[in-house]
Design a protein around this nucleic acid. Structure first.
Ligand SMILES: [Zn+2]
Ligand SMILES: [Zn+2]
Ligand SMILES: [Zn+2]
Ligand SMILES: [Zn+2]
Lengths: 171, 171
DNA sequence: ATTCATTTTGTTATGTTATATCATTTTGTG
DNA sequence: CACAAAATGATATAACATAACAAAATGAAT
């Protein structure tokens, strides 16, 4: 029983810093360019641990730079997703910073990697999780079916431990 | 190694018939109304084993009834999804007939149930799969995190066995 | 430094998916 | 029939995403 959800009062500034540092390192190693725009979008995605919509990011950028069009945001997000620094949550049509960017093992040629999520419907927080047993079950299932996996969308929605407790406590 | 993908030349008419029969039975048992529109939309979803977009369905309906607006389709799809007769594939933003409607165990109050998919990017076919080991891994993962799952989005994209063989054969 | 190809960003327009709202019709019930 | 509830029709709009082309920034080679 170890709750992987970041507690409300944690030092989030350090989450952001380590994400940006990891991004710099990853891009440097691969010869990719983490431009000011891309870096800023990554920073905005890391505003919190809640998935962010592309148009929310667009609004934030417009607030700080005036006219910005959707392609600007989507291109930055595409880059960040390719590098595995951001993930898209298909069930929410929203984006979240990668929680494993530091331990990037470079599963593929590009920077993408398996990413599985728990998403709390009450507090809205999503966390990237990694589980060997789950990975094994998926590989085994695909193997038996003769299926060659190239992408996994695994998103579990429900209520995190904290939100369940709040109900019990009557908060 | 048992390939769960329906082969190209199978008797699809019987897939459709059994899906419609199962739907009638499920709705009758629950006191829900499988109206002509809903039944027709279900039939159209079952056109094949490839996920269908809502606007594709809309076009088909318009072709046979003249003016039809998006809400007509989405309402029918909402109903069918609630009854577990159709599933939405979040990674594709498309819908597919439930492959387990016959063995409906009614996991919940409404007709929804766990649904996991293999989706072939070459032939476009998607199949609903069920795997005890996968279910167990998910439950175990959630349990350890103190997370209460209410919905699962599990969609594995890649290449089905047949499409892999076609490449080898040079077809 | 100047050229030049490549990459990134800006800009405009449009495409795709989904929902809100209210009117009308159909259905089941007393 | 009268009535309430459920389903459908109709209009408008919201939310998410991409195509296509122009301009600017970058990096490498002369
Ligand atoms: Zn944090
Ligand atoms: Zn929560
Ligand atoms: Zn079939
Ligand atoms: Zn295939």
């Amino acid at each position: 029983m170890d709750n992987p959800f970041a507690p409300p009062g944690h030092d989030h500034a350090s989450c952001v810093l380590s994400a940006l540092d990891a991004a710099e390192a990853v891009c440097a190693r691969r010869g990719e360019r983490l431009t000011p725009l891309r870096r800023r979008v990554l920073e905005l995605v890391w505003r919190g641990h809640r998935p962010v919509g592309a148009y929310d990011l667009l609004a934030m950028l417009q607030h700080e730079r005036g006219r910005v069009a959707p392609p600007t945001v989507y291109r930055a997000l595409d880059f960040l997703c390719e590098q595995g620094l951001v993930h898209r949550l298909d069930s929410l049509q929203a984006f979240i910073g990668c929680g494993q960017a530091a331990d990037h093992q470079d599963g593929r040629e590009d920077g993408r990697h398996r990413a599985h999520f728990l998403i709390c419907r009450d507090c809205g927080i999503a966390v990237e999780v990694r589980d060997g047993q789950l990975d094994g079950a998926i590989s085994h299932l695909a193997g038996r079916a003769g299926f060659a996996i190239s992408d996994e969308t695994i998103e579990l929605s429900g209520r995190c431990a904290d939100c369940q407790n709040e109900w019990i406590m009557g908060a």
